[in-house]
Design a protein around this nucleic acid. Structure first.
Length: 630
DNA sequence: ATAGGGTTAG
């Protein structure tokens, strides 16, 4: 796209090649500002010295076998190679590796191998069920659990918890309660994990509140004291069930017992309120929370040492970040992102943007959700400058955009009529393997066509067409109406060839006429076949002229094709093929084209042959027309 | 040496 190439693109890695780094980015890169900073680079120098003098420890055979299996293209073959070295706990490490890297196929194969070699223990089952939950495969979990013969394993609390968790995660609440009852009958002694797992199923159920109360009574009667997690889960049950008074009471209880020092319980209630459209109640609670100075509890500043460029080392959930020294207070983004998006949804665009700005002013750390949320707030108030700042932050924090990011940006660029950026965003989204939003892309395809970018419109069409199993039937006609007037007839042919049955007679006619007039002569016969394949008679696309012998039509589509062939006598084979094909389909050339052909037949050196084909054609056509008459 | 709680589009 010429125009796009000359326009400045935003300085974002995923919209354009990496620009020269900004000073901040360069400084951050120099100090390894990525997630999971390695100790060697980020830790103070004192830690490095002893390492240098000691020779690197030699890895044990078991450890190197584990590493080798993890890296192997075929884990089962590799496991077999190290069968004598590996112990069950080593195999568990390998099993978890495939779970953490979301390689479900290998995960199941490794588990199967362990099963065959009798190398399963409690931890293997617990981990495997957890990952089956993540990979949305509760049926397999039930199957494997059902096949466990040894009662001590069947009723082991962590095995039971992980199977129940797998069912709950996948919406199988009723079966989780039934299975739980069965487990109790077989002798399970449940613990707090069990109850919080089952309670988290309750919050998604309609009758969840009653069931939750049963469970709370049960755990109390077993003498358990609810810890912060189970209390928080219960808060969610109330909040999801719209029992806000009860939820508030519970939150007060949590505060009193010191379980409300981080934002999580507040987030649950705030989220519950906004989902019930009680935005201002949520806002009041949000402000309360901020006034109380509630922050994320797991975060801490690891080192006050100035790393030379004005950054502090800090950890959040075991991940290390560098944050600027001038960061006054650090909130993690859950509560903010809930409120910002709630205001946005409620139509309070300016308020939503103000909150995003407040977060930006107070914080250095962003995660993907917070970035998406702020990005949307800026997009919907048309604050292009802040949008670009967000994109730069995304690069600097090494955060990869997801489908929500791409769609937000695409929508915004479309709304702002910056179609080349919308196109670029769609392209990046497609390249990164995200599913495109058909409605939005179709809109942009049309806008690109109108703005004079038919090739880009076609490219959007292709991304939709080949990125998805099915597309809306009208999409083909839409792109055809862009390609034909723009003279992109070969592309238009590709569209018609595969989708002629979804295209209206009028558009097919326009396409066929344009192609005969100026399309590639070598494709003329193919185009005829593709158009014929639509189910319409090609003769119906021409200007129909009634003649005394009523089956004669003026066929301007065939006529135009014949004119093209007469201008190129070296394409005589194609002409003869066309005439033969017409005969086979019961078509015949109109009288003026016939005369034209006969007059020029010597050009092809086939005067006799052409005359024969034409007379055969007329005979066949007469029969076809009569058949159509009846 | 395993299992439990929170956020984002139209």
């Amino acid at each position: 796209m010429e125009a796009a190439a000359s326009l400045p693109l935003p300085a974002s890695r995923f919209l354009s090649p990496p620009p020269h780094p900004t000073p901040a980015a360069a400084a951050a890169a120099a100090c390894c500002s990525r997630r999971n900073i390695s100790c060697a680079r980020a830790a103070p120098r004192a830690l490095e010295a002893p390492q240098a003098s000691r020779p690197p420890p030699r890895p044990s055979p078991r450890r190197s076998a584990v590493a080798e299996v993890k890296a192997a293209p075929d884990p089962v073959a590799a496991l077999t190679r190290f069968e004598d070295v590996l112990q069950t706990q080593d195999c568990n490490i390998i099993l978890r590796h495939y779970g953490e890297t979301r390689r479900w196929d290998e995960l199941s194969k490794v588990f199967g191998w362990m099963q065959e070699h009798d190398m399963l223990n409690i931890a293997s089952y617990s981990s495997y069920f957890k990952y089956l939950g993540l990979s949305r495969n509760p049926a397999r979990a039930l199957q494997v659990y059902g096949a466990i013969r040894e009662n001590p394993t069947r009723i082991h609390v962590s095995v039971c918890n992980s199977v129940l968790g797998c069912l709950v995660k996948n919406g199988r609440f009723d079966s989780s309660f039934k299975l739980y009852d069965e487990m109790i009958r077989e002798g399970l002694s449940p613990d707090l994990f069990t109850y919080s797992t089952l309670l988290s199923g309750c919050m998604k159920l309609k009758q969840g509140y009653t069931k939750a109360m049963e469970l709370v009574n049960e755990l109390n009667s077993r003498g358990f004291q609810m810890d912060s997690v189970i209390l928080t889960t219960l808060l969610k049950v109330y909040s999801k069930g719209g029992l806000f008074e009860k939820a508030r009471e519970l939150l007060t209880e949590l505060e009193a017992s010191g379980f409300a020092q981080d934002e999580m319980p507040y987030c649950i209630l705030i989220d519950g309120l906004v989902k019930e459209r009680k935005i201002w109640e949520a806002m009041i609670l949000f402000n309360d929370m901020k006034e109380k100075g509630v922050k994320s509890g797991k975060k801490c500043v690891l080192s006050m040492e100035n790393h030379g460029i004005g950054f502090l080392l800090m950890a959040y959930n075991d991940v290390q970040y560098l944050v600027p020294n001038n960061t006054l207070s650090v909130y993690y983004g859950y509560a903010f992102s809930i409120m910002i998006s709630a205001l946005h949804r409620g139509g309070y665009r300016e308020e939503s943007k103000q909150l995003a700005k407040e977060f930006e002013a107070k914080n250095a750390t962003y995660d993907l959700v917070m970035l998406n949320t702020s990005l949307r707030a800026y997009c919907s108030t048309n604050d292009m400058e802040s949008v670009m700042i967000m994109l730069r932050k995304m690069d600097e924090s090494n955060i990869s955009p997801d489908a929500i990011t791409f769609n937000t940006l695409t929508r915004y660029f479309c709304m702002a009529k910056v179609y080349h950026l919308a196109y670029k965003t769609i392209q990046d989204m497609h390249t990164k393997g995200h599913q495109l939003n058909e409605e939005l892309c179709s809109e942009i395809m049309m806008q690109l066509g109108e703005a004079g970018f038919p090739s880009e419109a076609f490219s959007v069409y292709n991304m939709l067409r080949y990125g998805k199993r099915t597309v809306c039937k009208s999409l083909h006609e839409k792109v055809l109406c862009i390609l034909v007037p723009a003279g992109l007839l070969k592309d238009a042919y590709v569209v018609v060839k595969d989708n002629s049955e979804f295209i209206s007679r009028r558009s097919l006619g326009n396409f066929a006429r344009s192609f005969m007039a100026s399309g590639n002569i070598n494709l003329i016969n193919d185009v005829m076949k593709a158009v014929h394949h639509s189910g319409w008679r090609i003769s119906q696309f021409g200007v129909e002229v009634e003649t005394p012998d009523f089956w004669m039509f003026k066929l301007d589509i065939f006529g135009k094709a014949i004119q093209r062939y007469i201008q190129k006598p070296d394409k005589k084979q194609l002409l003869l093929c066309l005439l033969d094909w017409m005969t086979g389909q019961g078509y015949s050339v109109d009288s003026s084209s016939r005369n034209l052909l006969l007059r020029n037949a010597q050009l092809f050196g086939q005067k006799q042959l052409i005359a024969e084909i034409l007379s055969k054609q007329q005979g066949a056509s007469r029969i076809t027309s009569q058949r159509h008459q009846k």
